[in-house]
């Protein structure tokens, strides 16, 4: 019995070790000031910092990775969120959106903060600086609606 357990344990370790050779591509392209939302609209503080720390890990091309992101299968779990997040909204490609999409993005941004659907609970569990207070959510929401109006008038 003890021997069998040892074999299973060793097998498991071997599989985990092997998994480390398979890693997703890292999401860290340089910031393009022509395309990046915070750059393009010259977002003021504290909004820019709040958005960078609460949203940019999954909604931009610049993820700041935690240490365990090098370890499979966590790396794949993170990658899944990044891919999905960028699919929904990638702030790094902001300028590529048409006018209606920009306005819609700002509206959805506010809705997600207001409804509490974003940032994700699992993300906030690890990232303390992503835990936005009610006041921060409100001010980001107002700021976002102002941006939507600005785009309308462009």
């Amino acid at each position: 019995m003890g021997r069998r357990l040892k074999i299973v344990g060793l097998g498991l370790i071997a599989v985990l070790a092997l998994l480390q050779f398979f890693q997703p591509e890292r999401n860290n392209a340089p910031i393009d000031p022509e395309l990046d939302m915070l750059e393009v609209i010259a977002a003021q503080e504290p909004m820019a910092s709040l958005i960078r720390s609460a949203c940019y890990d999954c909604h931009s091309n610049q993820t700041i990775y935690p240490w365990y992101s090098r370890i499979s299968p966590f790396s794949w779990y993170l990658n899944k969120h990044i891919v999905k997040g960028k699919e929904d909204l990638n702030f790094s490609d902001y300028s590529l959106l048409d006018k209606a999409d920009k306005i819609g993005a700002f509206a959805d941004f506010c809705d997600a903060l207001d409804a509490g659907t974003m940032p994700l609970q699992s993300y906030m569990l690890i990232h303390k600086d992503a835990r936005l207070t009610l006041e921060e959510r409100e001010s980001l929401c107002n700021w976002s609606e102002t941006q939507a109006l600005k785009v309308m008038r462009e």
């Binding site: 209606a100 306005i103 819609g104 993005a105 700002f106 509206a107 959805d108």
Partner: peptide
Amino acid sequence: RLSKQIGLLGDIG
């Protein structure tokens, strides 16, 4: 609200 409607119109299209 207005911003939402505009965004949704873009999405629908």
